[in-house]
Amino acid sequence: MAIEGLERIVRAHPFFAGLDDSFCKLICGCAKNVRFDAGQYLFREGDAADAFFLLRHGRVALEVSAPGRGSVTFQTVREGEIVGVSWLIPPYRWTYDAKALDLVRAIAMDATCLRQKCEADHHLGYDMMKRFVPVLVERLHTTRLQLLDVYGTPA
């Protein structure tokens, strides 16, 4: 797809709301369109975290496998949201599986490319951090609520 088409999609995605034109050009150099059929994995636990995904359509289940319990979904993510934050933090490895629940269309951002651009331009790096930190904090916060097991049946 032409770069202009990607730029339009990236700019329209809620995660990149208000993105500066020059930053948009830089990051779109790392972007490509991808699709996954229902049941296909975007990535698996332990793999190198070499991308993150802007969801445009469909839903993705984030799962962990526990011995004797099979796969447990701890979060679903939908269009307008992002999948993947491990690409930001060494050792850049996925710590869960991400599985398409239905047909998923997304923009995949190449993590190595993006990390290099963020190193070269710290203004871009700071802009990216400001967008990712709220997602991380929100996920930490919701995980805490899930851990409290507020609906649990009292013993």
Partner: peptide, 13 residues
């Protein structure tokens, strides 16, 4: 809050 595979709905708070 959490689900096994087979649940097609939302997971999360």
């Amino acid at each position: 809050d959490h689900a096994r595979s087979g649940w097609h709905g939302h997971v999360g708070v």
